[in-house]
Each structure stands twice: as C-alpha cells, then as structure tokens.
C-alpha cells in the first residue's frame, strides 16, 4: 500500500474534483486584480501548472485550496505588475507549506455576507464598490463619469471605502 500522501499520486478524477472545487475561486481572485479575461486565464492556468510542478511537495491535502488561491493571487499580481511595465520574475512561487490562511474567505457564501455589510455603507462607497466589483476592467475615468465624481478622487475614495468595508466585515467575523 503506498504511503505517499502527496499529490504526486493523485488521479485524473481527483484532479478534476480539485478543479471543480477551486477554479471559480481562483478565477474570481485573478479578476479581482482587474486583469483582462485573457490574463486572468493565464494566471489561473499558471497556478494549476505550479501545482503540477510542486505535486510532490504538497503533503497536506487540506491546504491545497488555500495554496491554489494564494498562488493564483501571486500569478495575478505578477501579471498585473507586468502590465504596468514593471520587470518581474516569473519563477518565484509561494511556499507549499505556508499558504495564506486568509484565502479561505474567497467563498460565495462569505461574499453574500459581505454584500449585506456593504449595504450598511453610505454613498458613494456603496455604488463605487459595486461598480468596482462588478466591472473589474472599468477604469477610474469611467467610474468617475458614472458616479459624477472627480476622477482624481476615485482611487483615494475607493481605498477609504474598502477599508471601511473590511473593518465592518472583520468586526462581524471576530
């Protein structure tokens, strides 16, 4: 009987189960970076390829989901930086033993809870975050037109609104 508990011995059916469980979360994380559909697809595929590369090193199946989400964020951040003209390495990979535990919040039910908290925020936060979430490729200029706000205020306002939302959510979860 094999004693190897790593992903190196996973079969096609188990792999497809992983895809079914996590690809939606990985896609949502990649798109949260404002990546185009093509770049988001590359980021997600990159995370799966990293899993293949590191299959023998992942010993705790319970951590695979967190590691996949963490690695997708890593690849998406890299593609986002490169799109801005930065020179980035494409070879550093998150530690297989240390996936980000906060990746667990990437979940549809948790998202519905956050929408309910968002309704507690006033304007323009509610509309701004709604636009930002539902139209990840929208530019600040487009959001400024929709909300009738100065374009220069969108970035700071978005950061302030997200901080308020995060505080509300963390208060609830704690």
């Amino acid at each position: 009987m094999p004693t190897d508990n790593s992903l190196a011995i996973i079969d096609q059916a188990a792999w497809e189960d992983l895809v079914a469980r996590f690809d939606g979360r990985m896609w949502a994380v990649a798109r949260a970076f404002g990546l185009s559909a093509a770049d988001a697809a590359d980021a997600v595929q990159g995370a799966w390829l990293r899993l293949v590369e590191n299959a023998g090193a992942i010993r705790d199946p319970e951590r695979i989901g967190a590691w996949l989400v963490t690695t997708t964020r890593h690849e998406a951040a890299r593609l986002s930086r490169r799109a801005r003209g930065e020179v980035v390495s494409d070879l550093d990979v998150p530690d297989t033993a240390l996936p980000d535990p906060t990746a667990a919040v990437v979940d549809a039910e948790f998202g519905r809870q956050v929408w309910r908290r968002l309704d507690l925020l006033g304007e323009p936060c509610r509309s701004l975050i709604r636009l930002y979430v539902l139209h990840p490729e929208a530019r600040y200029a487009q959001i400024a037109v929709r909300l009738n706000l100065p374009v220069g205020s969108i970035g700071p306002t978005r950061a302030r609104c997200m901080a308020r939302l995060r505080t509300l959510v963390e208060e609830e979860t704690s």
């Binding site: 798109r31 919040v105 549809a108 998202g111 539902l134």
Partner: peptide, 18 residues
C-alpha cells in the same frame, strides 16, 4: 487581503463565472 474580499464579493454576486 483586499483582493480576497473583492473576489468573495464577485462570487457572492454570481458575476463573471469562470
């Protein structure tokens, strides 16, 4: 992380499925 919060919101809205 902000990206995780945004991703959860996107999933919660059922927007932009994979």
């Amino acid at each position: 992380r902000e990206e995780y919060l945004l991703a959860a919101l996107r999933m919660g809205a059922g927007a932009d499925p994979v």
